[in-house]
Design a protein around this nucleic acid. Structure first.
Lengths: 196, 196
DNA sequence: ACCTGAACACCGTTCAAGT
DNA sequence: ACCTGAACACCGTTCAAGT
């Protein structure tokens, strides 16, 4: 009895590329050639196919970018979960990931990401927990927003090379971490209460 | 004696558009249609000319974006200088400007800006001074970096609509400001000293 | 000396036609 | 049922030709 493989002349051609292939190739191109180099054409070449064929696996370039972003978030989540849960360790893991995968990081944490917030929050959840542990429940949300704003802002500036005044960038990072930890620890400065 | 204007048939055609016209049109398009809508074609139509003519005034689309960014930084600088110099007021002015001109703000403070750092620093200089007044000279630089990282990160998230957990976003902003002010005021948490 | 039409290279995307 | 070539719309940019 003939196998499917020996019969390709008769059977409908089985697809030689999977969605995982496409996303994987896109991730590789993103890291080596940056976001601008991540063209449908480049992905097609990488997986050994012509550009139009990609639309069998992906509705859009935007769709592909979203899948790449989700894959990136998944590995970031892994990394965060693997830390001790200490706020300093979490912040360090976050920054390390960004420096290792700058283009993928920026894809996720830039304005156009449009990722489902659920996955984004899952990745950052350990950070929020660490904040809540310091502030107590009432100030947990504004504290978490302060921390994530600072971290993403710092990393964005670092990746953009906007820290050109010299000085010790690592020391500035640690200064920020310690300021956050200290401020969240005793919230005496915060008299207004949370709701206006 | 014939004026130049009455003689246009003979004189080399005087340019009907100026660089200021081009930059002004680009600023308008940026605000109304966003960065993606800011095409050379759109600018050309706005100033009443065909796209190739723009290259008489601008070497590149990148060049045009840089000019737009510099114009944006100039008005931001004005705004910052018009405040009292108090750190809370400066931060508020910065955020207000970003919300009034989100596309222009993002053009300047995103990864691809490539603006001369001199003008960028001029715009933020009052912020740095306010930090130095709180921390003293030794910690001024890391403190300023912490503050600008937090502010740009917060605004970036706000403009991207990434604050979807409900709660009071304005309160989170003020929580952050007060945490910064308090932390910079008494730097007791910062034992390491600045240089490692 | 400015402006223009035409052209080029390069995108993303569609679709009828191949196998 | 997947893949392809050809085509389309839309970019930025160049350049010879108009005035």
């Amino acid at each position: 009895m003939a196998t499917v493989n020996s019969y390709t002349g008769v059977m409908p051609t089985p697809s030689k590329i999977s969605l995982a292939d496409v996303v994987g190739a896109a991730l590789g191109i993103l890291e080596t050639r940056g976001a601008a180099g991540l063209t449908m054409q480049a992905v097609a070449v990488a997986v050994g196919v012509r550009a139009p064929s990609l639309y069998k696996h992906v509705t859009d370039r935007d769709h592909l970018l979203r899948l790449v972003g989700e894959a990136t978030l998944a590995s970031l989540s892994e990394r965060m979960d693997a830390t001790s849960g200490d706020l300093r360790a979490l912040a360090a893991a976050f920054r390390t990931f960004a420096r290792e995968h700058p283009a993928a990081y920026l894809l996720v944490f830039s304005q156009e990401s449009q990722l489902p917030l659920a996955s984004l929050e899952a990745a950052v959840a350990p950070l929020l927990d660490a904040c809540a542990a310091l502030t107590g429940p009432d100030n947990a949300l504004p504290a978490a927003r302060t921390l994530t704003a600072w971290a993403t802002g710092f990393i964005g500036m670092e990746l953009a090379g906007q820290f050109n005044l010299g000085g010790n960038v690592d020391a500035a990072w640690e200064y920020g971490v310690e300021l956050m930890v200290a401020g969240m620890g005793h919230g005496a400065f915060w008299e207004h209460g949370f709701v206006e």
